[in-house]
Design a protein around this nucleic acid. Structure first.
Lengths: 177, 177
DNA sequence: GCTTACATGTAAAATGTTACATGATTGG
DNA sequence: CCAATCATGTAACATTTTACATGTAAGC
């Protein structure tokens, strides 16, 4: 079984009402390294949860901007989310293209492999810096477990970059023999 | 775009022919932390690659055991895999239930949160030990980039456990104030 | 004048998981 | 005798991505 988008949606609405557009924003900002869902996934999920009476829609008329559909969680929705919180934690499901490529690295040229690794190291450094900045900026408004969440993200990207740097040295030794 | 199973299948066949069953075995053993595919995904992928002339099937008649379908990569298949190796590396796609739960941790009881974290720490310690054992056992037969792959897995699980242990301390301080 | 942000949604296609179906042999 | 390993495959269902469709307003 895999983590379903509907639980993430319900989790967000547990604290405050928001629109599908707002949710996607949240995913991009705070969920980057552990969850993502496209609009084509968010909107149908909202429609389905509404049909199941887990959420109710409120249309907010806005001038200058398109109207907004704000969803509010119902008691049924709260129950469903609480059931989720009491269900067993699922394993992380990861699809890491870089690791797949490295596994087959012997079939690629050395330059290609080095490029993959160097680009990833650089990318991860950027992400670590961004997450750290974000963390400093909002930690006062975050719960302790949310802080841990961000920390897991930071350490994940940092650990991967470290391993890749060590890997570069290994490759260097390998080619010099 | 997401990493497609067909490229992983082609990658395995690039070195030697094997069956769908063998592939699943490989995924479980060496790809655990960065890729997985069920039989219901592997077999249809093989059927489709065969239709596209990327692989050819050889039926091996076995006594005592069910017959085996060994697939061999064709030149078309090799080209497709080489194209993949030269395409841009995709970002990791992660769905981490634990992080989602921690993000919403304030809605769960403290015991529940502690249970989530302690269980994950224990699980990761087991995985690290297994990967390390496996690494020692087969590193002589592995390419350098494959070693890096295993190392990324080890460090990923270790870093997450470390962060969670630090998180437990944070939670402790938090409750004592 | 172009892009970005705001905002929602659908349809087609791909992709995937789970459960089912089958059936022999080996090891505890 | 029961579970696991060997081995393949399908069907139903769930889920998701991508592309399309629409339209305003602000900022550069």
């Amino acid at each position: 079984m895999q983590l379903q988008a509907k639980y993430v949606v319900l989790g967000l609405l547990y604290k405050r009402s928001m629109s599908g557009y707002d949710m996607k924003k949240q995913f991009e900002k705070y969920f980057t390294y552990f969850f993502d869902a496209s609009y084509g996934s968010v909107y149908p999920t909202l429609t389905k949860l509404e049909q199941d009476n887990c959420i109710v829609k409120h249309t907010i008329i806005q001038e200058d901007k398109p109207n907004k559909h704000e969803y509010e969680i119902t008691s049924t929705g709260r129950e469903l989310f609480e059931e989720y919180l009491n269900s067993p934690v699922l394993d992380d499901s990861i699809r890491a293209d870089l690791c797949v490529r490295l596994f087959f690295g012997e079939f690629a040229s050395k330059e290609t492999v080095l490029k993959w690794m160097n680009e990833r190291i650089k990318k991860n450094e950027t992400i670590v810096a961004e997450l750290q900045e974000e963390y400093e900026r909002i930690k006062s408004e975050m719960s302790v477990t949310q802080e841990i969440t961000i920390q897991i993200g930071i350490d994940y990207h940092r650990a991967q970059a470290d391993t890749l740097r060590k890997g570069l040295k290994l490759l260097d030794q390998d080619s010099s023999t």
